[in-house]
Each structure stands twice: as C-alpha cells, then as structure tokens.
Computed example of a mutant assay.
Amino acid sequence: MRRNNSQMNLYGKGSLPIVGCLVLFSVVLGTTDLGFIPVPTAAKSATIMHLPTIVASLLEGWPAGMIVGAVFGLTSMYTPSSAVASDPLVVLLPRILVGITPYLTYRWTGMLGEYSRLGLAAVVGTLTNTVGFLGMAWFLGYFDFETIVDVAWKHGLPEIVVAVLIVLPAVVLLRKAQVWIETVLD
C-alpha cells in the first residue's frame, strides 16, 4: 500500500525505523560533536543537529519531530560547551519546537510546489532553532542583544543554506525508503 507523501503520521509501518534512525543520528551528531561546527563567535559553535528534527517532522509529523527534537535538546544539554548550553529553557524548549514548526509550515503551504514547501519548512525549522535558542539566551541574560544579532547573522544564514541543501534530498530519499519498507513489511 503506497502512502501519500503529504500524509504524515506516526503510525505507518515504515515510521518506527525512520524515527529510530533519526533519533540515533541526533545522538551521534551530539555526542561525537559532529553536529556542532566550531566557530569564533560568542555561541562557540554552529549546529546541524536540528536537521534530523526537521526531517522527522516532515516525514512523520509533529509528534515524531518533537521526539527527535527532545533528543536533540537533551543531547545538547548533557554535552554542553558553555553554561548557556546546559540551561534546559534555552536548549530543550526551542529544540522541541523545531519539531513542530516545519510540519506546520509544510501543511500550511499546500498551494506551493513540493520542493518549495520542503525548502520553506527547512528555513522555518532552522529559524525556530536559531531564534528560539538565541531568544531564550537573551531573555535569560546569557547574552546581550548585540551579541545575539551578531551570532544570528553569522550562524543563522549559513545554517539555513545547509538546512535546505540537506533536508530537501533527505526527505525525498527517505520517503522512497518508507515506501520500500512498507512494501517489504506487507
């Protein structure tokens, strides 16, 4: 039985392996530091760890996105590079939201083409991560506003480009993998 690409849920036969792989990928990215790219700014590193969360959200819906996002946040929190990175309000809450906003963006942009919807969802998910993390860090007094703006420009724009370049093909390929898994399991 072939699944409609716009039908996202956590109950298909191919869902558990895909979500499990994305959770594992988040853990590996976080615990090996492969998900954090060192940069000479106040934030100390740019991240690609939000990408599995965005992919989970687009493939399986917001519940899966929230699960992978929570793993992303917990991994970040328990392997902190600074005091701000160990604060659950700064690290955990925005990362869980990264699991929701790409899904909603994808659903609400149904009038656009498929690739545009996926690209826009990747942009929104990345902005949720960047703005959520930096906004909470500013709100809780970890960084001043000038530092936040500097980090947002230096990290946010490259992270958006990388997100679109990785999320688009990843979602397309994993959708094909889901169809194959469901065929094998039937």
Rank of each mutant, 00 (worst) to 15 (best):
Asp33His: 12
Pro88Val: 04
Ala56Ser: 11
Thr126Cys: 08
Val167Phe: 02
Asp186Lys: 11
Pro102Asn: 05
Lys154Trp: 02
Leu134Ser: 03
Val131Ile: 15
Gly141Thr: 11
Glu159His: 05
Met1Trp: 09
Thr75Tyr: 01
Ser6Leu: 11
Val179Leu: 14
Thr183Pro: 00
Thr147Ser: 13
Val184Gln: 14
Leu140Lys: 14
Ser116Met: 12
Glu60Cys: 15
Pro102Leu: 03
Leu74Glu: 10
Ala137Phe: 02
Val179Pro: 00
Thr130Leu: 06
Leu74Asp: 08
Thr75Trp: 00
Lys44Gly: 00
Leu89Thr: 06
Pro102Trp: 05
Leu174Cys: 08
Gly110Cys: 06
Val149Ala: 14
Gly14Cys: 07
Gly30Thr: 04
Val124Tyr: 07
Leu59Asp: 04
Lys154Asp: 00
Glu60Val: 09
Pro38Cys: 06
Val164Thr: 03
Arg3Ser: 05
Lys176Pro: 01
Ala64Met: 09
Val164Arg: 01
Thr53Gly: 10
Ala43Tyr: 11
Leu120Lys: 01
Gly69Pro: 05
Ala177His: 03
Gly132Val: 13
Trp138Met: 11
Val164Ile: 12
Ser6Trp: 06
Ser76Leu: 07
Leu120Glu: 06
Thr79Val: 15
Leu22Trp: 06
Leu34Trp: 14
Ile48Ala: 10
Pro169Gln: 09
Pro169Trp: 14
Ile160His: 04
Phe133Val: 15
Leu112Pro: 08
Val27Leu: 14
Leu34Lys: 03
Met1Val: 09
Val124Pro: 01
Asn4Glu: 13
Asp150His: 13
Leu165Phe: 08
Val39Thr: 10
His50Tyr: 03
Thr130Trp: 00
Arg3Gln: 13
Leu22Glu: 05
Ile148Phe: 12
Thr183Glu: 15
Gly12Trp: 14
Ser82Gly: 12
Asp33Asn: 14
Leu51Thr: 11
Ala46Asp: 06
Leu24Val: 15
Asn129Cys: 12
Asn129Trp: 02
Pro94Ala: 11
Ile100Ser: 02
Val164Gly: 02
Pro40Tyr: 08
Phe145Leu: 14
Ala43Ser: 12
Tyr115Trp: 11
Phe25Pro: 02
Val98His: 03
Glu182Ile: 09
Ile100Asp: 01
Ala42Glu: 10
His155Pro: 01
Gly119Ser: 13
Tyr106Phe: 15
Val90Ser: 11
Leu59Glu: 02
Ile148Gly: 05
Trp153Ile: 15
Gly110Phe: 05
Gln178Ala: 09
Leu16Ile: 14
Leu16Ala: 13
His50Phe: 03
Ser6Lys: 13
Thr109Cys: 12
Leu127Ile: 13
Ile37Trp: 06
Val71Phe: 11
Arg2Gln: 13
Leu51Gly: 04
Met111Arg: 15
Asp150Lys: 12
Leu140Arg: 15
Phe139Ser: 13
Ala177Met: 11
Ala177Tyr: 10
